[in-house]
Amino acid sequence: MKATFQVPSITCNHCVDKIEKFVGEIEGVSFIDVSVEKKSVVVEFDAPATQDLIKEALLDAGQEVV
């Protein structure tokens, strides 16, 4: 499964690193693409990962998800 999250609070590479760390810890996540320019995060994943778990990880990383 693939999901795109709009994350307007992404401003720098530190944000990218933190997002990759938090989302990458979720079992089932196979790909993460964070774009500072587009302020988006694209995640490819399989169970047990879910969109809700990914959104929670983004929030835990200090990001706003819309």
Rank of each mutant, 00 (worst) to 15 (best):
A49H: 01
Q51G: 07
V23S: 01
V43L: 03
T50D: 04
A61T: 04
G62Y: 11
V65S: 05
P48K: 01
V34C: 11
E56M: 14
M1K: 11
I26V: 13
M1Y: 10
E64M: 13
I10M: 08
K21S: 07
F5K: 00
P48F: 03
N13I: 15
C12V: 07
I32N: 01
A49E: 01
K55G: 04
P48Q: 03
S9E: 05
I19N: 00
K18H: 06
F5Q: 00
V16C: 07
V42F: 13
Q51N: 07
S9D: 06
E64L: 13
D52Y: 12
V66S: 09
E64Q: 12
E25C: 07
F22V: 11
L59Y: 09
L59F: 09
Q6A: 09
E44C: 15
K38S: 10
C12H: 10
E64S: 10
E37C: 07
L58I: 13
G28V: 04
P48A: 02
I54P: 00
A3N: 05
E25W: 09
I10N: 01
D60W: 12
E56N: 13
E44P: 04
F45V: 00
K18M: 10
A3E: 06
S9M: 08
V29Q: 02
I32H: 00
V36D: 03
D46E: 11
S30A: 10
I10S: 03
C15H: 11
A47V: 08
I19A: 01
V66L: 10
E20F: 15
T4L: 11
K18V: 10
S30P: 01
A57L: 04
F31C: 09
Q63Y: 15
C12M: 09
V23N: 03
K2P: 01
E25N: 12
S40P: 02
K39R: 11
E20I: 15
I10G: 04
V29L: 02
G24H: 05
V29D: 00
K18T: 09
E56V: 10
E27C: 06
P8K: 11
A47D: 06
K55L: 14
E37D: 09
C12N: 13
K38C: 11
E64N: 09
K55H: 11
L59N: 07
A57S: 04
D33N: 11
K39T: 05
K2A: 06
A47M: 09
K55S: 05
H14A: 15
H14G: 11
V42L: 10
V34Y: 05
I54A: 01
I54W: 03
V65Q: 05
